[in-house]
Design a protein around this nucleic acid. Structure first.
Length: 180
DNA sequence: TCAGTGATTAGG
DNA sequence: CTAATCACTGAG
């Protein structure tokens, strides 16, 4: 399936349940492509966008993962059950939207880099109005943000993750970015 | 290429 | 308390 059609089609679907998120992040990340992100707007309408680009961050051994330095106040949600949101501010301006994956005790998350025709993790959160108030929100039960499965499974490519120069040669090169 | 902008974190 | 860092973006 082409990216073009993903941009146009954000059809209604069924809300994704817990079991989807509690799998390993390397299984969940590619499966997220084509899923529909639904966010409640201020005026009670809803934003609906297909996910087009994501990145996986996996455990304490992954030097690019914020949990690699252990549990802190900010990263504590990554140690919880998959399906929660990990939100943080970067460069004093941009909120990053991440979906926690895996079982309790295994810190993993997927950074959402692109939705619909919006490319860039900082731009999409600005558009959706995502901020620290969404920290810890549960996609399985939330009334204001969730994911739907429309049955669409787009083809995708992989590549190295972006913006992690500090992580060392190995972690900088693993192909854990997935995009349509 | 490079500045903007502020929460988070480790360290004294 | 201080100071460095940072999963980005847009302007030149």
């Amino acid at each position: 399936m082409k990216t073009e059609s993903l941009i146009e089609i954000a059809k209604p679907g069924q809300r994704i349940s817990r079991e989807f998120y509690t799998r390993d992040v390397l299984e969940v990340a590619p499966d997220l492509l084509g899923k529909v992100l639904v966010v409640k707007n201020n005026d009670q309408s809803y934003y609906r966008y297909s996910l087009t680009e994501v990145e996986a961050y996996r455990g304490t051994e992954d030097k690019a993962c914020h949990a690699s330095k252990g549990k802190t106040l900010r990263t504590s949600i990554m140690f919880e059950e998959g399906g929660h949101l990990y939100i943080y501010l970067i460069y004093g301006m941009y909120w990053m939207l991440n979906i926690v994956t895996g079982p309790i005790g295994e810190p993993q998350a997927v950074l959402i880099r692109g939705i619909g025709d919006i490319c860039g993790p900082g731009k999409l959160t600005k558009k959706l109005g995502i901020n620290k108030l969404f920290y810890g929100e549960d996609l399985v039960t939330s009334e204001r943000i969730w994911l739907e499965d429309t049955g669409i499974k787009p083809g995708y490519k992989t590549g190295p993750r972006v913006g992690i120069e500090y992580a060392g040669a190995h972690w900088k090169s693993v192909p854990w970015r997935y995009f349509c």
